[in-house]
Simulated assay, not measured.
Amino acid sequence: MKKGQLWAGILSPLISLGGIGVAIMINRPWWRLTDNAISDLGKVGLPYSWVMNVPLFISAILAIYYAAGLFGEVKNTVFRLGIALFMIGLAFLAGVALFPEGTEPHYHVSWGFFLAGSVGYLIAGAGLWLEGMRKFGAFTTLLFTAEVLLARWAFNTFSGVAIAEFIGIFAMIIWHYSLMGTLLKAGFLGTRD
């Protein structure tokens, strides 16, 4: 993996979370975690919608670049299938920024991000389990199960979907950084210029 790809993987989640955080601060007079969606912060016609949408787009591009580097590091077919699906989820994340709330495709790209991203990391984790990384495979399964159960609870508890969305986002981020650490420790992520 190129050093730039590794750095892209490190920075990508921080960029997207930073954009969301600043957008929340700007819109705090009306935006509520329990009553809104994250996408409300980037909707069409909202002043400063770019504060969230631009970082989401940049984050998605960086994450795709990083994920593309994973293909050369782990040869397991199941892992690669999961990473390919995860990358499709990241393309949908770019779509969330390009088609903000208030546009026709927004609902579909938003759901595409959460579904493809989550199922993608589950499949990739199964691939690593098959590769002999049993603890990481079990961790992935537990994380996915917790994500689904907690998101379902949040959907049924709050009027807005932001908490359920954050549960999905943080599950993917936790998995991403855990994967990075696991692969570095196992010597899979060799870096080159």
Results as ranks from 00 to 15, higher is better:
G72I: 13
L41C: 04
Q5R: 15
A151I: 12
A91P: 00
H108C: 08
L130N: 00
P47N: 14
T157E: 05
Y107P: 04
M25H: 02
F136N: 07
Y48A: 15
Y107R: 13
A124R: 09
I169E: 02
A37Y: 14
G82A: 05
E147Y: 12
A91L: 12
G95P: 01
T34A: 12
G45P: 02
F99D: 04
L93N: 02
F114I: 05
P105E: 09
M25D: 04
E147F: 12
K3W: 13
R152H: 15
S12C: 09
F57N: 01
L93C: 01
G95Q: 10
Y177C: 06
F86M: 15
F155K: 10
A154G: 10
G45Y: 00
A162N: 06
A154F: 10
L150S: 07
G168V: 05
Y177A: 13
L179H: 01
Y107A: 13
A84V: 03
Y121N: 12
G190Y: 12
W153Q: 14
L143F: 06
G190P: 08
E101G: 10
F158A: 08
Y65M: 14
V51W: 09
W111P: 00
F136P: 00
F166Y: 15
I58R: 08
V109P: 00
G42P: 01
I83S: 02
N27K: 03
L11M: 09
I24M: 14
N76Y: 06
V44W: 04
G42Y: 04
G18H: 04
M87D: 00
L17R: 00
I167S: 04
N27T: 07
M87R: 03
V109Q: 07
G187W: 10
K75Y: 11
W50T: 07
T140N: 12
A94N: 04
M172Q: 10
V74M: 10
N53H: 06
I58Y: 03
A186Y: 11
R28Q: 11
I88T: 10
V161H: 10
A126I: 15
Y121S: 06
A138K: 06
G89E: 06
W50F: 12
L70S: 06
A37Q: 08
N27S: 11
A186F: 11
G190W: 09
A94W: 11
M25N: 02
G187M: 09
N76T: 01
I58E: 10
L150R: 00
A151F: 07
N76G: 03
I88K: 11
G9Q: 13
I88C: 09
I38T: 03
S59W: 12
S59Q: 08
I10D: 10
H176T: 05
L46I: 09
F188L: 13
S118G: 07
T145G: 09
M25I: 12
I167T: 00
V148K: 03
A94G: 14
I167F: 07
A68Q: 08
P55R: 08
